[in-house]
């Protein structure tokens, strides 16, 4: 039985959402993780706690507050309406904002851990050799943390594909606009179409297992070793 057009839409939408979210997360999460890796004070600890919040909070809590924040009668919602001419809540953009916040720890934490492991002495050496901070980051930190970037991107992507609660709260269930895979699956179950539900559920399980397996298998092979 081939996938229905609605299901294909949901898959495409899910992949697009995960891709955009992952790209934004790498862009925003890298400087945040770098900053956190250089902090030892309580401000750093507080920001770290905020970043980790989605790990323990029910997604619906995050989704609920985001819905309140992004609604058309809030300052954020009004500003969005003025600038883009469209409503923010229940749009693809709202999904992206929610996903970025919800998947933030999955990107920031592996990057922060990797940045912390880069010996400060190597960056000092690079500085004495004429590399400015941006150059040090590009030529030393990035290559040394390449694997962690891969891990961070994969976890961010996979976690976005798998989210449900936040999406349901701020995106609703609009086919082609906000109906992602997990919502489509929920829809099937609600309407007692178990065969279709099975197909989507099993697909998600296989995708997740394959991705995680590839990650963990690669973990053992590192092209270089850091010396103390």
């Amino acid at each position: 039985m081939p996938l229905s057009p609605a299901e294909l839409d949901a898959i495409a939408l899910t992949l697009a959402l995960a891709a955009v979210t992952t790209a934004l997360l790498l862009l925003l999460g890298t400087p945040l993780a770098w900053w956190l890796s250089r902090q030892r004070g309580s401000l750093g600890a507080f920001i770290e706690a905020l970043v980790a919040l989605p790990l323990i909070l029910p997604p619906t809590v995050l989704g609920f507050y985001l819905l309140l924040l992004l609604a058309p009668d809030t300052p954020v919602g009004r500003l969005w309406q003025q600038v883009t001419g469209t409503q923010l809540a229940f749009s693809f953009s709202a999904l992206v904002i929610g996903s970025v916040l919800y998947s933030l720890p999955f990107v920031v934490q592996p990057l922060q851990a990797a940045f912390t492991r880069v010996p400060a002495g190597l960056l000092q050496a690079a500085a004495t050799l004429g590399a400015n901070p941006a150059d040090q980051f590009r030529s030393i930190v990035l290559p040394l943390c390449r694997r962690s970037f891969l891990v961070a991107a994969s976890l961010g992507f996979a976690h976005t594909v798998g989210e449900f609660g936040v999406v349901l709260m701020i995106g609703g269930n609009i086919p082609g606009e906000t109906q992602v895979l997990s919502i489509a699956l929920y829809d099937h179950v609600e309407t007692l179409r178990f065969a279709e539900a099975h197909r989507l559920a099993a697909g998600l399980v296989i995708f997740s297992v394959a991705l995680l397996f590839a990650l963990y298998r690669g973990a053992g092979t590192t092209p270089w070793r850091l010396r103390a």
Binding site: G121, L122, A125, A127, L226
Partner: peptide, 20 residues
Amino acid sequence: LPAWQRGIGYVFQDARLFPH
């Protein structure tokens, strides 16, 4: 003047070679 603009070379006690 920051270190990277001083035109120096620095040899540390531990070699600090770039592992990659």
